[in-house]
Design a protein around this nucleic acid. Structure first.
Lengths: 207, 207, 207, 207
DNA sequence: TATGAATGAGAATTCATTCAT
DNA sequence: TATGAATGAATTCTCATTCAT
C-alpha cells in the first residue's frame, strides 16, 4: 500500500514497491531494537538507505510507519496461518499447527516477535484499532479451531473458546518474548516450549 | 526512598513519605493512561499536585520514576502473594490462589495492571533488570507451588515448572490486559476467566 | 556589613558577624573553584555550614554575594597595601613593596587570587562598578608611587603613570593567575617572577 | 568543521561553511556582550538569523560553540602574527610588531578582544586545554623573539624569556581589556599605550 | 521523486529564591 | 533567626516534519 501515485510504468511501480518495503523492513529492525518511542526516524532512514525526507513520501508520519508495519506483518502472519491450517480440519492437528506456527515465527523472525511482544499491547491500549483488527483475525482462526474441536466432541464444551484463545495467545506471546530476549537463545528451547504447551492444552482442553 | 535529607523530625519524615507516595501514585495514573514515553513530567506533577521541580527532589529523573514505581509496586505484589499463599501448602489450592490473586489485582487496581502489562516487557527489553528481578521473584513463588505439586504426585512430572510458570504468567497477564483495556469491563468476566483458566491448568497439569 | 538588624546584644552582633563571614568565605572557596556562573548557592551554603535560605538573610541574592565578596576582599587588600606602603616614601622601595605585596597575596591566598583573576574582568565588563571602584583605589595607590617617582626625578617623566599602573597590574595579575592555576606551584617561582618584574620595571621606568 | 555530511556539491559545501561562520560570528557578538554564561543559545541563533536547532547541526552543544570559537579565532590570530613577524628578524622591530599587532587586534575587533580578555582565563581554569594550546603557541612566537634578542646581545640575558612573555601578555591583555570596555574609546589612546609599553619594555629588557 | 538542511515546538531538568514552620 | 522543602521560570537540546533544490 505505497502512497506515491506514479503508477505509470511497471518499472516505476516496482521500484516504489521495493523502496516502500525497504523502509518498512528498516522500521522493524529499528523498532524492535529500541522500541518505537526511542526509535529515530533518521535511524530508520539510514538503515533503509534513504534520506529522512523520503520516508514522508511513503508514510504520513512516524505513527503511520508503525501502523503500516503492523498491518503488513500481521496480514502476512494471518495469511501464513491460513495456509498452514488449510491441509487439515482435525482439531488436535490444527492446534499443534497453530502453536508450531507461532513459535516458528519467533525462531525465524525474532525481530518481528520482539516488536510484536513489546509494541502490540501499547498500541492496543493507545492507538486506534489497526492492529487490533488483525490480531482479532489471527485469534479468530484459533477460535474456529477450538470451536471445531468442541463440535467434534474432542474439546471440553464447558470452556469458552473466546477465553481460551486469549489464554493461548498470552502464553505463546510471553514465552516467545522471553526467548527472543535471551541473547543465548536456542531454537531447541522454544521447540520444547511448544511440546509442553501442546501437552498442557491438549490435556487441559480435552473433553 | 525519598532523597531529601531532613529526616530529623517524625513529622518531617511522614510528610516526605506522603509526598513521595503521592508522586508515585500520580506516575502510575499517568503512565497507565498514556504510556511512559508519552507521559509528561509536568502532567505527573499536576496530577500529584506538586510543582514540576518537586519531582526531582524525590526522583533523579523520569527513568528513576519508572524504576521506583516498578520496585514499589512489584515488591508489594510479591509480599501480597506471599501472604496469600501462606495459609496453604496444598498445590491445587495454592494454584487457585495464585490465579485469583493475579486477577483480583486487575480488578482492584486496573491502572497498575495496565501499567504492568504495557511497560513490563518494554522495560525488560531495554532497561536494566530492576523490574526483571521482582518479576523473577513473583514467578519463583509460582514455580515453587508447581514443584510442590509434582512432588506430591498431583502434577505431571513431565512438564517443566519453569516453562509452565511463564505460560501461566503470559495467559494471566494477557487476559488481564485485554480486560483492563475494555472500557465496559465487568469483574464477573474476569472471574469467569479465572475459573476457566484454573480448570484448564488443573486438567492440563494433572499427573 | 551584615544586613540583619538585630544588633541588640553584643553577643548577637558577634554571632551574626561570624556567620556573615563564614558565608563569604564559603563563597570565595566555591567561586574560585567553579567560577561564579557554575557555582551553586546550595554548595556555598553547604560549605558555609548553613541552610540555603540562611544565605538570603545575609545577602540579597547571588549577585550580591559576588559584589560583597569583591568589596570585602578588595577593601582589605587596599588597606593592607596602604599599611605596607606606610613605612616608606622612597619610590623604588615602594615599587618593590607593591610587587611583593601583590605576589604575596597570591602565595598566601591562592583562592582569592584565582577568584580575582577569573571574575574581575567579567565583573568589570558586565556588572556595576562595585569592584571597579576598589580596583581604582588599589591602582590609585600604585599611581601615587609612580608619580612620586617622577617628581623625585627617579622615573621617566615621559611615561604616563595612568598607563603604567595598568601595565603593571596586567603583568602581575596574569602571572599570578598562571601560577595559581598550576597544581604544582612553588612559591619560589612566583618570587622569581617578582624579581624579574621588578628589574624590568625599575630599568624600564628609570629616568 | 561543520558536522553535516553533504559535502557532495561545491555549492553545498560553500553554503554550509558560510552558515557555520555566521553562527560563529554571532557567538562572538553575543558572548562578548554578555559573557558565555549569560549568553543564550536562542540569542546566538537569532543574531545568526537561524533557528535554535540549526546551531546543533553545526555544533555539539553550547560548550562546543565556545571551544570552536576559541580555536578558530586564536588560530587566525596566530597565523596573522606569524605573517606579521615574517619580514623581520630584528628583535627590537619584532617586539614593536608584536605589541602593535596585539593592539591593532583590539582596535579592529573589539568584540574579539573583549571575548578573549573575559573568557580566556575562565576557560583556562575550567575547561580542557583547547584554548591553552593556542595561547601557548601565540606566546611561543613572542618568546622566540625575546630569545633572539638575548642571542643578539640586545636583551638582558638575566631575564627569563618565559616570564617576560607572560608579563607582556598580561600588560597587553589588561590594557586592551580596559580600553575595549570604555564606551568612549579612542584608538589614539591605545596607540599611546603601545608607545609607552614599547618604551618600557625596550628600556627594561635592554642588555 | 529524492534529498537532507533547516525548522521550531516541546520536554526534561536545574537552581535561585521564597516561605511555612 | 534558621531551616530546607517547594516552587516554577528559564534554558538547553532533541527530533519529527517540512520544503527548497
Amino acid at each position: 500500500m505505497p502512497r506515491p501515485k506514479n503508477l505509470d510504468t511497471e518499472e516505476g511501480r516496482r521500484r516504489r514497491e521495493e523502496k516502500y518495503q525497504r523502509i518498512l523492513d528498516a522500521s522493524l529492525t529499528v523498532f524492535s531494537q529500541k522500541g518505537f518511542a526511542e526509535a529515530k526516524i533518521s535511524e530508520v532512514a539510514e538503515t533503509a538507505g534513504v534520506a529522512d525526507g523520503t520516508i514522508y513520501l511513503y508514510f504520513k508520519n512516524k505513527d503511520d510507519l508503525l501502523i503500516s508495519l503492523f498491518e503488513e506483518k500481521l496480514e502476512a502472519i494471518n495469511a501464513g496461518l491460513r495456509e498452514a491450517l488449510a491441509p487439515t480440519s482435525e482439531p488436535l492437528q490444527a492446534l499443534a499447527i497453530i502453536i508450531k506456527y507461532h513459535l516458528d515465527l519467533a525462531i525465524h523472525d525474532p525481530s518481528l516477535t520482539a516488536f510484536i511482544t513489546i509494541e502490540l499491547r501499547r498500541s492496543a491500549a493507545f492507538m486506534k484499532d489497526y492492529a487490533k483488527e488483525q490480531l482479532a483475525e489471527y485469534l479468530g482462526q484459533w477460535q474456529r479451531v477450538l470451536q471445531q474441536g468442541q463440535q467434534d466432541g474432542i474439546f471440553n464444551e464447558n470452556l469458552s473458546t473466546s477465553i481460551m484463545k486469549h489464554i493461548l495467545f498470552g502464553a505463546l506471546d510471553h514465552t516467545c518474548g522471553v526467548w527472543v530476549n535471551n541473547p543465548n537463545r536456542d531454537p531447541a528451547d522454544l521447540r520444547e516450549v511448544g511440546e509442553q504447551l501442546t501437552e498442557l492444552f491438549v490435556r487441559g482442553l480435552a473433553a
